[in-house]
Design a protein around this nucleic acid. Sequence first.
DNA 1: AATCGTTGCAACCGCTGGTTA
DNA 2: TTAACCAGCGGTTGCAACGAT
Length: 326
Amino acid sequence: MVRPPCCDKEGVKKGPWTPEEDLVLVSYIQEHGPGNWRAVPTRTGLMRCSKSCRLRWTNYLRPGIKRGNFSDQEEKLIVHLQALLGNRWAAIASYLPERTDNDIKNYWNTHLKRKLQSGGDGAAKPPAHRPASSSKGQWERRLQTDIDMARRALREALTPLGELKPQQRDGVDAAGASTGGGGGGDSPASSSSGASLCSPSVAAPGPYVLTTENISRMLDGWAGGRKGRRGGSAGPGTPGGAESASTGSSDASEVSYGGAAVASAAPPTAGALSEYETKPAQQMPLSALESWLFDDDSHIHHVQSASLLDVPPMAYPFWLEASVFK
DNA sequence: AATCGTTGCAACCGCTGGTTA
DNA sequence: TTAACCAGCGGTTGCAACGAT
């Protein structure tokens, strides 16, 4: 089943997205909701392939995305989930509703992997290789051991430190010193749960019209809130990323991600987007994992990821939010 | 100040799986 | 049953910013 790539057509633009393209895309999704990506380029007039539009939305424009500044809790969770699930970034991302799979993948490749390779924090190592010399039985026993270790480690990551008994912490440390899970267990949750964040909506018929009102509203906020990537010029850059957030100014990103301003802001429309927006926060992807995780440890409190990570209400990137939610 | 290596991240590419006709 | 379409996933790349010399 060979077919040409979707993006090799002539006239399909590649490379960094411009602010104007972002505005068009967000405005369209605001009205029709995410989904039906095939139709997005034609309806918006964007010279992008559908894939590029979807990627831009899910990795960058989607409301509620937090960028940069991975907390210790998040880092720990990623390490343990990676040990447990392997490089299934979408599955891992489903436990971190504010993070995209791409972001987690990048963070893993650029920070955590290196950190672990250098034996930095003594946390769980990346998935171990399958020992070729081991017999099947040995391998399975070892695999089961690794799964148990990863399970304990993950449980610890999902449990506030204050609730851990000393021996539980010790157990976690032991797990952290192990060679890790090695892709043993399949995800108890849906492997494509990341996709569940996007509820396919019914696109309205007819070409999408980007109203001048929409554009002007967005551009108003753009000019004020935008910060280039690392102060640079590459497109819309990283809105409120680690760098800008760490500058400590009263940047709009703090307002965005802080939650209060977002919580008080009315959704853009009563339509698909507002409905969509609430989904990540409502999603409790841990339930299946929890039952598996805690089934033999009833003395440990069930902990929901939302409370653990203190997920704020969904928010657009600051540079869009200021205008979109005016 | 200039150069060069490193880092971080956005985006692309190829593949897979689900759905539909 | 099969082929085409489509959305999504994970690996990889390209490039701008950063830091060291």
